[in-house]
Amino acid sequence: MQTIVCQTTAAPALFTAEGMVGVIFLLTVTLVLTGAVIAVNAQRLVRAVAGLAICFTGLAGVYYFLLSPFLAMMQLLIYVGAVSILIAFGIMMADPEEKRGVGMKNRSPLAGPLAFSTGALMFAALTVLGLKTQWQVFPRQGTFDIKAVGMALLTTHSLVFELISIVLLLAIIGALVLAQRGRN
Protein backbone atom coordinates (compact mmCIF):
# COMPACT_ATOMS: atom_id res chain seq x y z
CA MET A 1 0.00 0.00 0.00
CA GLN A 2 1.56 3.27 -1.05
CA THR A 3 -0.11 6.63 -1.34
CA ILE A 4 2.42 8.44 -3.52
CA VAL A 5 3.33 6.77 -6.80
CA CYS A 6 6.93 7.47 -7.73
CA GLN A 7 8.88 5.77 -10.46
CA THR A 8 12.22 6.06 -8.67
CA THR A 9 12.49 7.20 -5.07
CA ALA A 10 16.18 8.09 -4.93
CA ALA A 11 16.62 11.84 -5.24
CA PRO A 12 19.35 12.83 -7.72
CA ALA A 13 22.10 15.32 -6.99
CA LEU A 14 21.94 18.70 -8.72
CA PHE A 15 24.90 18.34 -11.07
CA THR A 16 24.02 15.01 -12.65
CA ALA A 17 22.00 14.32 -15.77
CA GLU A 18 18.92 13.39 -13.71
CA GLY A 19 19.33 16.51 -11.60
CA MET A 20 19.42 18.71 -14.70
CA VAL A 21 16.29 16.98 -15.97
CA GLY A 22 14.65 17.83 -12.65
CA VAL A 23 15.68 21.48 -13.01
CA ILE A 24 14.22 21.60 -16.53
CA PHE A 25 11.00 20.08 -15.22
CA LEU A 26 10.75 22.77 -12.54
CA LEU A 27 11.28 25.45 -15.21
CA THR A 28 8.51 23.87 -17.30
CA VAL A 29 6.09 23.88 -14.38
CA THR A 30 6.99 27.51 -13.69
CA LEU A 31 6.15 28.30 -17.33
CA VAL A 32 2.75 26.60 -16.98
CA LEU A 33 1.81 28.40 -13.76
CA THR A 34 3.12 31.81 -14.90
CA GLY A 35 1.19 31.55 -18.15
CA ALA A 36 -1.98 30.58 -16.29
CA VAL A 37 -1.68 33.51 -13.87
CA ILE A 38 -1.13 35.94 -16.77
CA ALA A 39 -4.01 34.51 -18.77
CA VAL A 40 -6.49 34.74 -15.90
CA ASN A 41 -5.46 38.09 -14.44
CA ALA A 42 -4.34 40.22 -17.40
CA GLN A 43 -6.34 43.40 -17.97
CA ARG A 44 -6.05 43.36 -21.74
CA LEU A 45 -7.24 40.26 -23.51
CA VAL A 46 -4.32 40.22 -25.94
CA ARG A 47 -2.03 39.66 -22.96
CA ALA A 48 -4.36 36.94 -21.72
CA VAL A 49 -3.96 35.14 -25.04
CA ALA A 50 -0.18 35.50 -24.78
CA GLY A 51 -0.40 33.95 -21.31
CA LEU A 52 -2.48 31.11 -22.76
CA ALA A 53 0.20 30.45 -25.36
CA ILE A 54 2.95 30.50 -22.70
CA CYS A 55 1.02 28.11 -20.48
CA PHE A 56 0.35 25.66 -23.32
CA THR A 57 4.00 25.74 -24.38
CA GLY A 58 4.91 24.72 -20.84
CA LEU A 59 2.21 22.07 -20.91
CA ALA A 60 3.80 20.61 -24.04
CA GLY A 61 6.97 20.23 -21.95
CA VAL A 62 4.95 18.48 -19.25
CA TYR A 63 3.60 16.05 -21.85
CA TYR A 64 7.18 15.40 -22.94
CA PHE A 65 8.01 14.48 -19.36
CA LEU A 66 5.00 12.14 -19.39
CA LEU A 67 6.81 10.11 -22.07
CA SER A 68 4.74 11.29 -25.01
CA PRO A 69 6.69 13.48 -27.46
CA PHE A 70 3.90 13.02 -30.01
CA LEU A 71 1.33 14.64 -27.73
CA ALA A 72 3.82 17.41 -26.91
CA MET A 73 4.13 18.14 -30.64
CA MET A 74 0.35 18.04 -31.07
CA GLN A 75 -0.06 20.40 -28.12
CA LEU A 76 2.30 22.89 -29.76
CA LEU A 77 0.62 22.54 -33.16
CA ILE A 78 -3.02 22.62 -32.10
CA TYR A 79 -3.11 24.81 -28.99
CA VAL A 80 -0.19 27.20 -29.42
CA GLY A 81 -0.37 27.25 -33.22
CA ALA A 82 -4.09 27.14 -33.89
CA VAL A 83 -6.34 27.83 -30.89
CA SER A 84 -4.35 30.78 -29.52
CA ILE A 85 -4.12 32.36 -32.97
CA LEU A 86 -7.85 31.81 -33.48
CA ILE A 87 -8.67 33.55 -30.20
CA ALA A 88 -6.28 36.37 -31.14
CA PHE A 89 -8.21 36.82 -34.40
CA GLY A 90 -11.48 36.88 -32.46
CA ILE A 91 -10.08 39.62 -30.21
CA MET A 92 -8.94 41.63 -33.21
CA MET A 93 -12.39 41.44 -34.80
CA ALA A 94 -14.50 42.17 -31.75
CA ASP A 95 -12.03 44.44 -29.92
CA PRO A 96 -13.26 43.88 -26.37
CA GLU A 97 -11.83 46.00 -23.59
CA GLU A 98 -11.95 44.92 -19.98
CA LYS A 99 -11.44 48.11 -18.06
CA ARG A 100 -11.75 48.18 -14.32
CA GLY A 101 -14.76 50.19 -13.20
CA VAL A 102 -16.49 50.39 -16.59
CA GLY A 103 -18.28 47.06 -16.57
CA MET A 104 -18.71 46.93 -12.82
CA LYS A 105 -22.19 48.40 -12.67
CA ASN A 106 -24.05 45.15 -12.04
CA ARG A 107 -21.30 43.56 -10.02
CA SER A 108 -21.18 43.01 -6.30
CA PRO A 109 -17.87 43.93 -4.62
CA LEU A 110 -17.75 40.38 -3.28
CA ALA A 111 -17.43 38.85 -6.76
CA GLY A 112 -13.62 38.92 -6.94
CA PRO A 113 -12.94 37.45 -3.48
CA LEU A 114 -15.72 34.88 -3.94
CA ALA A 115 -14.25 33.79 -7.27
CA PHE A 116 -10.81 33.53 -5.68
CA SER A 117 -12.07 31.48 -2.77
CA THR A 118 -13.97 29.18 -5.14
CA GLY A 119 -10.79 28.53 -7.10
CA ALA A 120 -8.69 28.10 -3.96
CA LEU A 121 -11.19 25.64 -2.45
CA MET A 122 -11.27 23.63 -5.70
CA PHE A 123 -7.48 23.53 -5.74
CA ALA A 124 -7.24 22.45 -2.10
CA ALA A 125 -9.89 19.75 -2.48
CA LEU A 126 -8.41 18.32 -5.69
CA THR A 127 -4.87 18.39 -4.28
CA VAL A 128 -5.89 16.56 -1.11
CA LEU A 129 -7.83 14.05 -3.22
CA GLY A 130 -4.84 13.47 -5.49
CA LEU A 131 -2.37 13.09 -2.63
CA LYS A 132 -4.47 10.98 -0.27
CA THR A 133 -5.99 8.48 -2.68
CA GLN A 134 -4.28 5.11 -2.71
CA TRP A 135 -3.67 4.61 -6.40
CA GLN A 136 -3.41 1.07 -7.67
CA VAL A 137 -0.61 0.44 -10.16
CA PHE A 138 -1.35 -2.15 -12.83
CA PRO A 139 1.43 -4.08 -14.53
CA ARG A 140 2.44 -2.46 -17.80
CA GLN A 141 1.43 -4.35 -20.95
CA GLY A 142 1.85 -2.00 -23.91
CA THR A 143 4.42 0.55 -25.00
CA PHE A 144 4.42 4.33 -25.30
CA ASP A 145 5.62 4.59 -28.88
CA ILE A 146 3.74 6.36 -31.65
CA LYS A 147 3.37 3.18 -33.69
CA ALA A 148 1.22 1.65 -30.96
CA VAL A 149 -0.83 4.85 -30.82
CA GLY A 150 -1.45 4.74 -34.58
CA MET A 151 -2.38 1.06 -34.50
CA ALA A 152 -4.85 1.56 -31.65
CA LEU A 153 -6.31 4.65 -33.33
CA LEU A 154 -7.15 2.69 -36.47
CA THR A 155 -8.23 -0.62 -34.88
CA THR A 156 -9.54 -0.42 -31.31
CA HIS A 157 -10.65 3.20 -31.40
CA SER A 158 -11.55 3.47 -35.07
CA LEU A 159 -15.24 4.27 -34.44
CA VAL A 160 -14.36 7.20 -32.17
CA PHE A 161 -11.78 8.31 -34.72
CA GLU A 162 -14.44 8.48 -37.43
CA LEU A 163 -16.88 10.21 -35.09
CA ILE A 164 -14.33 12.87 -34.17
CA SER A 165 -13.72 13.62 -37.84
CA ILE A 166 -17.48 14.07 -38.34
CA VAL A 167 -17.57 16.37 -35.30
CA LEU A 168 -14.75 18.45 -36.75
CA LEU A 169 -16.47 18.65 -40.14
CA LEU A 170 -19.72 19.76 -38.51
CA ALA A 171 -17.81 22.31 -36.43
CA ILE A 172 -16.25 23.80 -39.56
CA ILE A 173 -19.60 24.00 -41.38
CA GLY A 174 -21.35 25.36 -38.28
CA ALA A 175 -18.69 28.00 -37.76
CA LEU A 176 -19.01 29.12 -41.39
CA VAL A 177 -22.80 29.30 -41.19
CA LEU A 178 -22.81 31.14 -37.86
CA ALA A 179 -20.19 33.69 -38.88
CA GLN A 180 -21.87 34.30 -42.23
CA ARG A 181 -25.35 34.97 -40.82
CA GLY A 182 -26.35 38.63 -40.82
CA ARG A 183 -23.63 39.61 -43.21
CA ASN A 184 -24.60 42.01 -45.96
Partner: peptide
Protein backbone atom coordinates in the same frame (compact mmCIF):
# COMPACT_ATOMS: atom_id res chain seq x y z
CA UNK B 1 17.33 17.37 -3.37
CA UNK B 2 13.91 15.74 -3.29
CA UNK B 3 12.63 18.66 -5.41
CA UNK B 4 14.55 17.38 -8.42
CA UNK B 5 12.77 14.03 -8.36
CA UNK B 6 9.33 15.61 -8.72
CA UNK B 7 9.01 14.68 -12.38
CA UNK B 8 8.93 11.01 -11.47
CA UNK B 9 5.93 11.30 -9.17
CA UNK B 10 2.26 11.05 -10.06
CA UNK B 11 1.25 13.58 -7.40
CA UNK B 12 3.17 16.41 -9.08
CA UNK B 13 1.15 16.09 -12.26
CA UNK B 14 -2.12 15.78 -10.32
CA UNK B 15 -1.31 19.03 -8.49
CA UNK B 16 -0.51 20.74 -11.82
CA UNK B 17 -3.87 19.56 -13.17
CA UNK B 18 -5.68 20.77 -10.05
CA UNK B 19 -3.97 24.17 -10.35
CA UNK B 20 -4.95 24.52 -14.01
CA UNK B 21 -8.54 23.52 -13.21
CA UNK B 22 -8.86 26.07 -10.42
CA UNK B 23 -7.33 28.79 -12.61
CA UNK B 24 -10.00 27.94 -15.17
CA UNK B 25 -12.83 28.09 -12.63
Amino acid sequence: MLLLNLYNCLSTYLVIGAALFSFGV
